[in-house]
Design a binder for these strands. Structure first.
Lengths: 236, 236
DNA sequence: GTATAACACGAACACTTGTTCGCTGTCAAT
DNA sequence: ATTGACAGCGAACAAGTGTTCGTGTTATAC
């Protein structure tokens, strides 16, 4: 449809109407439009509004005061404000959720004898205040059931994990070779973080520090409690 | 202020007005309100609108048609959609900025001989894609000028930092006793991460692993490049 | 040059809309 | 029992607002 462009007056009318609606929360009257765009006669304003309606820039309800409505074509604002705000807020919330994970802090690991807390141990209400915030980019797994533990004592040093460090865990009760896991050694009654390998009928637990020697244990002695995904150290 | 609750009629007036505004893009007239909530007399509607204005639920412009405006207190939608969306977006963006810091990834540390990159070395445009996202809670400093380095090789193991770990650095060229810093040893042409102590006329560099022995160097040999704030390890 | 359409205008009118007035009824406090 | 506050009502009125009418000017098509 090859349509005539808007006259300058018609553009002024649209701009004024849009701004008036935003400032006042209601459309302007015919006389208010005329005063704003320099038209002395209500019938000229009426004529131009009729033309704008023909061209699809606004709707008019006849015989009611302030019976104008700008259409989408006029670039007017969305009518359903609450929905627009909610949609924007939801989109931003989704964007944040795409960026970070809040991992609940469940307690400590390290002082012997002390088994690791497990998923099933947890019944206290999750407290968001104690969460550790981590970038999703740094985790390559689904974020189900992650938890954080703070290391107490020097027993994890062979795992290159220091007193005070935080480890991000994923519940897991079996391990593949090479995975860094938290294991509870029943004979020692202690927990440790090592890379796990099955070798013949024994289990090799390899320290993260490659200069240290591994330990070999009977599979019966090992209780895997979870996989280590990240270590976070604050040095201050 | 102990204020009387709204009457049922007043609640109906607010609800009708809100819905009419959304449906029609303009406020209702006194007579439209009366018809909707079962009031035959314009003066009763007028009286109740006056009460709602007193209580802060709406504003009235006198002597104009459709001169009502619901206020925030009425739970009405924001009038300026763009502004409301922008305000909401800004508030959420501020909330995210309160929660996390995006630390630029500047390069590697560890392969010898290789001095640390410094603030002054950096001239390429900061690429947000390479940033490391860290929770502000885990940093106790102003976030000015932080940068991240990825560790290459085993040379940091005495610092309890493994190949592939990420360290979050703050530029700093002098150190207080006990701070974990990145230092460049001029004689070795190598960089290391250690706790820094001045002892007499020498400098003691203490490994993070307390079972290892420190090294003593001449102060002239030491070039401090930055303070280590955090270590992040991905174990997968 | 003429006819037609588009655009413009002031004035009057019709209708819509908000305000005011005088009155009534109910309820709580004195 | 009286009074005052509150809520309600119909009617009249004043003001606001949109529509219609008759006329004039300018641009376009033939």
């Amino acid at each position: 449809m090859n349509e005539k462009p808007l006259s300058k007056r018609q553009q002024s009318i649209l701009q004024f109407t849009h701004g008036y609606m935003e400032d006042h929360g209601r459309p302007p009257t015919i006389r208010e439009i005329g005063k704003a765009v320099g038209i002395n006669s209500t019938s000229v304003v009426n004529y131009n509004l009729g033309k704008l309606e023909e061209k699809g820039y606004l709707d008019r309800d006849p015989d009611v005061s302030r019976g104008l409505r700008l259409t989408e074509k006029a670039g007017n604002v969305a009518q359903n404000v609450g929905q627009a705000v909610g949609t924007a807020a939801g989109a931003l919330r989704e964007a944040v959720e795409q960026l970070i994970i809040r991992v609940p802090m469940w307690g400590d690991i390290g002082a012997s004898p002390s088994p690791l807390p497990t998923v099933n141990d947890r019944f206290a209400a999750y407290d968001d205040e104690d969460a550790v915030v981590v970038s999703r980019d740094m985790l390559k797994v689904k974020s189900d059931n992650l938890y954080a533990l703070r290391v107490r004592g020097d027993s994890m040093i062979d795992a290159m994990v220091n007193d005070g460090d935080i480890v991000i865990m994923q519940p897991q009760y079996e391990a593949r070779n090479g995975e860094m896991v938290a294991v509870y050694l029943r004979n020692d009654m202690s927990a440790t973080l090592k890379r796990f390998y099955v070798e013949g009928d024994r289990v090799r637990l390899q320290p993260a520090n490659p200069t240290l020697t591994p330990i070999y244990v009977d599979p019966e002695e090992v209780q895997i409690q979870g996989k280590v995904l990240m270590v976070l150290r604050q040095t201050e």
